[in-house]
Design a protein around this nucleic acid. Structure first.
Lengths: 222, 222
DNA sequence: CAGGTGGTGACATTCCCTGGACAACGTCCA
DNA sequence: TGGACGTTGTCCAGGGAATGTCACCACCTG
């Protein structure tokens, strides 16, 4: 699942990113209305965390933009406590839910799960071909075979599974699964993908292939 | 399970706190509407005990605030005897149950159990695999073997049993089983889970497993 | 005062991440 | 075709973070 966090307070963004990534989401961020609209045009998000107070305007325009097309991402609004009118208006403009700042991370995670669940139809389970990932139970399977994954491997696989069949570069993995301290020249992605690939493959045929100079691709079997 | 007691009579608050803590609940308190709203924003409660007569307003606003978001805590209203209209209105505003003051502690405990039970499904007895928890009698069994648990251990096990098979982080346990005075950097969760795990395991195979860097998981038997 | 409970800090242990070295592979071009 | 060079895969060991355990203390209760 890929999220866009539209928020300008840097500290809040960072703690959100860490918490969300830890929960297995791929996280992009945008500090302004402009960058948010740009990223929304280019990428396909599952959910947008939208602060209403932004340096170059309010979040309502983003709301409206998202709602112009059907099948867009869910919207979870973040509002200040004393802005009851904003909350009402936000829901009118098409937000799916809102949360009042300050909030507890577990509650945010719960709401996000609740919203994303509407897509999946009930569970925290992601499936691609023979692969099945249960994010609540932190379990992974290929067919009936349970995979014993470390958190990083789990995160990488989860991210790949959000966009099956697409080529995803090592840079992008580093950006989304590792945190901001990651050395951009590290080879830890190669190592992690390597061990993940070995565990997934087992006795069967490989599911993660390398597209040279481009990145990795998860086969979305039929 | 973590409760918020919204009530301004200090004596009552204290006796409630004692009674509830003895039953294995984590208890926070708020004497005013304001503090209640603050704590509700920051913490993730399972149930709110709500007095309607408060120094800075009535409890209905708290009710409404809780109900604005789905998946919030249960609400158990406390009302004066002669306020039938309040009771009706309270239920309309979203309270799950009410109790007329003065009341007997055992009855309050029974109602709380009934409300919290709605998450689980049915009776005062929670069962997961070989484990059985009688929340009314405060007894725990693995198969036929009685477990001698302390209140904290009981609380942890109860919480784990509400979501069997899911990975539950130490943070979340701290949030739901401990109260607001808990040091966020404490290792008391590790210690408590450790002793609980030893008692549950006994001679058999372990039922609480650790998912490294993520939390604990209670095996839900097949 | 004795016993139980729960919290703390020190320490041991386990396990994962990561950087470095190097091998294997692909690509390009003389 | 073969060598140079860049890219990717693999092994390995050190460091460090997360977890488990223990001894001890503070507090409460009967």
């Amino acid at each position: 699942m890929r999220l866009l966090v539209v928020e300008d307070e840097e500290d809040l963004v960072e703690s959100l990113r860490v918490g969300l990534v830890r929960s297995g989401y791929a996280v992009d961020t945008a500090p302004t209305v402009d960058t948010a609209l740009e990223k929304l045009a280019v990428n396909d998000y599952d959910l947008v965390l939208l602060d209403l107070m932004l340096p170059d305007g309010d979040g309502f325009s983003v709301c409206r933009e998202i709602r112009t097309a059907p099948g867009g991402p869910r919207i979870l609004m973040l509002t200040a406590r004393d802005r009851l009118a904003d909350r009402v208006r936000g829901l009118d403009e098409g937000a799916d839910d809102y949360l009042v700042k300050p909030f507890a991370l577990p509650e945010l995670l719960a709401r996000i799960r609740a919203l994303l669940r509407r897509d999946d139809g009930g569970t925290a389970v992601v499936e691609v071909g023979e692969l099945r990932l249960d994010t609540a139970r932190f379990e992974a399977f290929r067919g009936d075979r349970a995979l014993q994954l470390t958190p990083k491997e789990f995160g990488v696989l989860h991210y790949l599974m959000t966009r099956p069949g697409e080529v995803i570069g090592a840079e992008e993995l580093l950006e989304h699964v590792w945190d901001e301290n990651a050395d951009p020249f590290t080879n830890t992605v190669r190592v992690t993908v390597g061990s993940l690939r070995r565990k997934i493959t087992g006795e069967d045929e490989p599911l993660i292939e390398t597209v040279i100079r481009q990145g990795y691709r998860l086969k979305d079997a039929i």
